[in-house]
Simulated assay, not measured.
Amino acid sequence: MGIFDSDLYRDITGFAHDTPSWFQHLMEVFTELGLLVFAVLFVAAWWRARRGDPRALAVAVLAPLATGLAYVCSELVKSGVDEERPCRAVSGALTSLVACPPHGDWSFPSNHATIAAASAVGLTLAWPAIGRLTVPLALLMAFSRVFVGVHYPHDVAVGLAVGALVSFVTVRLCVGSGARVVVAMRGSGSGVVRWFAGSGVVSGYAAVGGHRR
């Protein structure tokens, strides 16, 4: 952690204290519950992709799985770095708007920012038009973690990078295999499995290669 990062943290938390109380409360709620928006969008993307080709559904299902993997990666880094929260470590900083997490709940990187970025990238790959909503939401989620005082700017910056990279790579590497699984599911004898996979396009895809014939 550098002096510049501490100064920027003080500037942002100082700005937070200067905003109206209603806005502070709004950010306090959003920083904890904003991730639920991504969960709802994951369900919407899956439902939408059930009418599409196997590759589209594969991406929609892989998006939340990639987000989970990004979270695990973030936790592994966090447990190895052991960086104290700025609300406890930065001298002269104003009190955080939300309770400072206990010692041992480390700061680097931000899990919230990681999850938000991974969700935004995965959803954009599954539903390109929605990127105009998910990307700003992810950036706002990352900013809110500094705004309420529980993360340094570099925590959220790295969290965004980790989440975006893991999500993009995971979806791209697994989409072919995922499409083959979807083809098999749509031809399954189980009604529940077929319902989950939807009644989208099956013909036109090779059962083995997962590509259009």
Rank of each mutant, 00 (worst) to 15 (best):
I12C: 03
D5W: 08
G80D: 08
L65R: 00
V166Y: 11
V146F: 06
H103N: 07
G198T: 01
L173F: 11
R51K: 13
W106V: 05
G131E: 09
V208R: 15
G176Y: 10
F143V: 01
W46S: 03
V166N: 03
D53G: 05
G209T: 15
V121N: 07
R48H: 12
R85Q: 08
S190K: 09
G2K: 12
A44R: 09
L33Y: 13
V175E: 15
A66H: 05
M185F: 08
S96L: 03
C100W: 05
G14W: 06
N111R: 03
L137S: 01
D5G: 08
A207V: 14
G176Q: 12
G200M: 11
L36E: 07
S144G: 10
M141P: 01
F143Q: 00
R180W: 00
S190Q: 01
L160F: 01
S79Y: 15
V192Y: 08
S188I: 07
R48A: 07
H211V: 14
S167A: 14
S107P: 15
A70N: 08
L125N: 00
A129S: 09
S21P: 13
Y71M: 07
W46Q: 04
V90H: 00
N111F: 02
V193K: 00
A45C: 15
V29R: 04
T124Y: 08
